[in-house]
Computed example of a mutant assay.
Amino acid sequence: MFIVVLFAVSLIRVGARRALNRRRARSPTANYGDLRLALSAVAGNTNQLFVLIAAFYVAMTVSGLASPTVQSWLWTALVIAFYAQLGIWANAAMVDYFNRRRTRQEMRDPSTVTGYGLLTFFLRVGIWITVVVSLLAYFKYPVAGLVGALGVGSLAIAFAVQNILGDVFSSMAIILDKPFRVGDFVKAGETLGTIEHIGVKTTRIRSLSGEQVVTSNSDLLNSRIHNYKHFRERRIAFRIGVVYQTPRELLERIPGMLREAVEEQPNARFDRAHFVEYGDFALIFEIVYYVLSPDYTLYMDIQQGINLGIHRRFEQAGVSFAYPTQELILRRGPALTVGNEAGSAAG
């Protein structure tokens, strides 16, 4: 009977492996749901110790060689091994399922590696807690008291490691809410750079100056994050000033000059140009336009072309740029006569 049970289990495992290979050969990327998960778990994750215990229990029970006490012990060992095997099968099926999903998601979002890793860890812990509690409930242990003790202990541990747990839950929030992903160009606080890695506790950013900035997930979520990955246009507003001595006819022509300077640049869309205010030492004009690309180097090239175009047009029209100046006005008082001076002295 011992050999028969071992042979039967081997046949089941071989059959499951062959069925799984046939399905993979037909369509390697197809998703067959629960049946494929069950076949994969049985074929590759059946523990040999569980098989030996089951075969020994069947052999001793059928042959009648085991006394009631020994049979009870064997049954207890078989139940424990069976629950452990259920946990192994559940873990294997869960890992297989999430690995296939992660492979598809990694093509679109590399940050899902961390997300699936965290999710797999918590699911594994949940599976084994369920197995242990179910096993204790089968043997009629006071599970309610154990669950309560675990709750109090978990609360104490949570208070002790609240900073670490805060970063862990922050990483889950980043993965689920996706305020940014690996490869996004962001500004977080004073840090400006590209997201390289989203970990369980920290996120790594490659700054523009070259160094890697490591910041905790909690601090990162508490700061104001500017994500430049998905913006399509860059709005630019700047001001220039001309001297107060500029004739009114030239002032009326300046918005047209500014518009021409912007419109002659490719990848730039003019919005407006106005004489906005009287400054302390200049007449102020404001120009607003859009760069039709998020590329910062392209924006600087366009801004440089606009500045040169404005300078060329102002030079041709005779318009002078303003710069900070102060004008001092000195007034001379009336001269004093000799008679007035003598009268003042007598007084």
Rank of each mutant, 00 (worst) to 15 (best):
I127H: 12
R124A: 11
R181G: 04
S216W: 01
M300Q: 08
A19N: 00
V214A: 01
L328F: 15
G87M: 01
K201C: 07
S170N: 01
P110F: 06
A43D: 04
L65G: 14
T325A: 02
V213S: 01
L52R: 01
F98P: 07
V243C: 06
G126L: 15
L37S: 01
A8R: 05
A93K: 03
L118P: 06
F275W: 11
S293I: 05
I205C: 02
N99C: 14
A93W: 02
A160E: 07
Q105F: 05
E286R: 14
V125L: 08
E315H: 08
H230K: 02
F169W: 15
G210S: 07
M94L: 11
M107L: 12
E249S: 00
V186A: 01
V58S: 02
S207K: 07
L11A: 03
M1H: 06
L165Y: 08
D271N: 14
S67C: 09
V291C: 02
L11T: 07
V113S: 07
V143F: 11
N47H: 08
Y57W: 14
E249H: 15
L328Y: 13
A149L: 15
R313A: 00
E106G: 05
E106R: 12
F169L: 08
T337I: 13
V62L: 08
T215L: 14
I127K: 06
F121W: 14
I240C: 00
E196D: 14
V95K: 01
S207N: 03
H226N: 10
K140F: 15
V291M: 05
L176T: 09
T215D: 02
N227I: 03
T325C: 03
G151W: 12
F122T: 09
Y228K: 02
N21V: 10
N31A: 13
Y57Q: 02
V62Y: 13
L283F: 10
A173K: 10
V5N: 04
L283C: 05
E277P: 07
G339T: 06
L250M: 05
R248N: 13
F7R: 09
L165I: 08
L118I: 12
R272K: 15
I174W: 02
L330D: 02
F321I: 00
T46S: 02
I306S: 00
I225C: 08
R253S: 01
G145C: 12
I12K: 01
V168D: 03
E315T: 10
Q71E: 14
I157E: 00
G309M: 03
K187N: 03
N340S: 15
L86T: 05
L78A: 09
Y290Q: 09
N227A: 05
R253K: 15
A16R: 00
V131E: 12
M300G: 06
I175R: 00
N163P: 13
I225F: 05
I88Q: 04
G153R: 00
Y289R: 03
I198T: 06
G15F: 14
A156C: 06
L86C: 09
R259N: 08
P142M: 15
P334I: 07
H274M: 13
T103G: 10
N217V: 01
E196Q: 12
Y299A: 10
V58Q: 14
I80Y: 11
Y83M: 10
A25Y: 08
A66L: 11
L74A: 11
R104M: 11
Y83H: 10
L155D: 07
R332L: 13
